[in-house]
Amino acid sequence: MKGTAVANGTVTIYNNGNVLGTAKVDDKGNWSFTPEPALKDGTYNITANATNTVGQVSDKTGIFDFTVDTTPPGAVENLLISDNEGAYQGPLKDGDTTDDSTPTFSGKAEAGSTVSVYNDGNLLGTAKVGSDGNWSFTPSSPLPDGDYKFTTTVTDKAGNTGDATPVVNITVDTSGVEVRLDKLVDNVGDITGDITPNGVTDDTRPEIVGTGKPGSIIKIYDGATLLGSTTVNADKSWSFTPTTDLGQRQPQHYRDGTDRTCPATPRSNLGICVHYRHRGTNSTNY
């Protein structure tokens, strides 16, 4: 606490009428006072008066009120990172991949405080918490594709900062999803090897081979029937072998160039429908 008073006098400082301490005024009329011991958390109503060198006492000053708060706020509660782009829109969890380069962060925190959003310790931005405890933050610029380690902290009006939330690992990937069904392989009987388009095989569980985006989940259908799924390898390759025998049938030929079981997608020469999902994005091709 600092102020001015009669030179060489003494200033007495009060809280709610109770003496906190005194300070000596220098010959230029300046004084300062630091409470000892330190003030406890709470609300204070400070006044002061001055006594000159002959013992005359001034009137008290007006009240200077403030609150001491040394308690850090709690961490963000119910932290939600939301994908708002593409086929999948909704909450993201630790380890997910999103095609949304400006995901929305939201949650609950101490009213009137400020939430800071970080990536690996680097500040992305801040959000003011409303009187209802709600806050929301969306990056003003798109996040480049890559891996992110998101955390948040809360800073209250007094400047106390609480603990960070646990790291949420999210990958931003806005590149397109690709999938190819390259071949079916016969591994049974006298004739083995690649099956020609619209060909015939005695292998009721042929290996289905293709390429796609690493980490994508490939779903393989026979017509509208899901045969199963597999994950694309790091080298872009994938393969799938049915776990049950495929039924016998004649090859199907469509003059309109579309597969009636997979609308709005080009017909595969192999007659197999592939649905693929890349952790946060969905599409259908085959």
Rank of each mutant, 00 (worst) to 15 (best):
D41W: 10
Y221C: 13
Y254R: 06
D222W: 10
F105I: 03
P166R: 01
S58E: 03
T241C: 11
V154N: 00
V209C: 12
N18V: 11
N122Y: 10
V11N: 00
E77Q: 13
L39I: 13
L181K: 02
A164D: 04
F64Q: 12
P103H: 06
G162S: 15
D120P: 00
L79H: 10
V209A: 09
E36P: 14
V274S: 06
Y44L: 06
T174Q: 06
I46A: 03
D145N: 06
G193A: 06
G189R: 03
T171G: 08
N8A: 02
K183Y: 15
R279I: 14
D26T: 08
C273L: 15
N198K: 13
P142V: 08
D26Y: 05
P242A: 11
V209F: 13
D100M: 15
G74E: 03
D41A: 07
G159C: 07
G74D: 03
T153W: 00
F105N: 02
N169Y: 06
T258D: 12
N8G: 03
V19H: 07
Q89S: 14
T126M: 06
D83I: 04
G215E: 03
G112K: 11
P266E: 12
S216Y: 04
Y254P: 10
D190A: 11
A5C: 07
H275F: 10
G280W: 01
Y276Q: 09
T211E: 07
T152E: 05
P242S: 10
E36T: 13
N15C: 03
P166H: 01
L181D: 03
T70W: 08
V172N: 00
S268W: 07
D194I: 10
K213A: 15
D96E: 13
P142G: 09
I195A: 10
N15E: 05
L20P: 01
N84T: 09
N78V: 09
N15K: 04
T244A: 07
A50G: 05
T153Y: 00
P263A: 09
G212Y: 01
D41V: 11
T70S: 09
G125L: 01
N78S: 09
L80M: 08
D132P: 04
G107F: 01
A264K: 10
V11C: 01
T97S: 08
D202P: 03
L181R: 01
E207I: 15
T155N: 07
T241A: 15
N198P: 13
V274M: 12
Y148Q: 02
V68I: 09
S82R: 07
S216C: 10
L246I: 13
V19M: 07
D27R: 02
T114Q: 05
V185F: 14
D100S: 11
L79R: 04
G247E: 13
F33T: 00
L143I: 04
N285S: 14
T171S: 09
V68R: 11
Q252V: 14
G146K: 03
D59H: 09
P251Q: 05
P37T: 08
T244R: 15
Y221R: 13
L39D: 02
